[in-house]
Simulated assay, not measured.
Amino acid sequence: MAMFVRTIDIVRAEVEIGMANLAYNLTHLVWQQGRSAPARVEKAPKSACSTADR
């Protein structure tokens, strides 16, 4: 990501870079949470002696 910072004071430049970093991180977090797959639910195995066999 290319960024051109145009400020006079070093403190203002650090704040500007920090805010850009925060915005990027929040955007990345939202993107990752949108991609999360639902948990895999496995069915219980059928028991060897079920009531239908009796």
Rank of each mutant, 00 (worst) to 15 (best):
M1E: 11
M1W: 02
M1H: 11
M3P: 01
M3H: 05
F4Q: 13
F4Y: 05
F4K: 13
F4W: 02
F4V: 14
F4S: 14
V5L: 12
V5N: 06
V5D: 08
R6N: 13
R6A: 11
R6Q: 11
T7E: 10
T7K: 06
I8D: 13
I8C: 03
I8R: 11
D9Y: 01
D9G: 06
D9T: 10
I10Y: 02
V11A: 07
V11W: 00
V11S: 05
V11C: 00
V11K: 03
R12A: 12
A13S: 07
A13D: 01
A13M: 00
A13F: 00
E14R: 08
E14V: 05
E14Y: 00
V15I: 10
V15G: 02
V15T: 12
E16K: 01
I17V: 15
G18P: 01
G18L: 01
G18V: 02
A20Y: 03
A20H: 07
A23F: 03
A23H: 09
A23K: 12
A23Q: 13
Y24C: 02
N25S: 14
N25W: 03
L26S: 15
L26N: 15
L26D: 14
L26M: 14
L26H: 12
T27P: 02
T27S: 14
H28D: 15
H28T: 15
H28F: 07
H28Y: 10
H28S: 15
L29K: 15
L29Y: 09
V30N: 12
V30R: 14
W31Q: 15
W31F: 08
W31R: 15
W31S: 15
Q33C: 08
Q33V: 09
G34E: 06
G34K: 05
G34C: 02
R35I: 02
R35T: 07
R35N: 10
R35S: 10
S36G: 05
S36L: 10
A37M: 11
P38T: 10
P38C: 06
V41F: 02
V41G: 02
V41C: 04
E42V: 07
E42L: 07
K43N: 09
A44L: 13
P45C: 01
K46H: 08
K46S: 11
K46E: 13
K46N: 08
K46G: 04
A48M: 05
A48H: 05
A48Y: 03
C49N: 12
C49S: 10
C49P: 01
S50H: 08
T51P: 14
A52N: 09
D53M: 03
D53S: 09
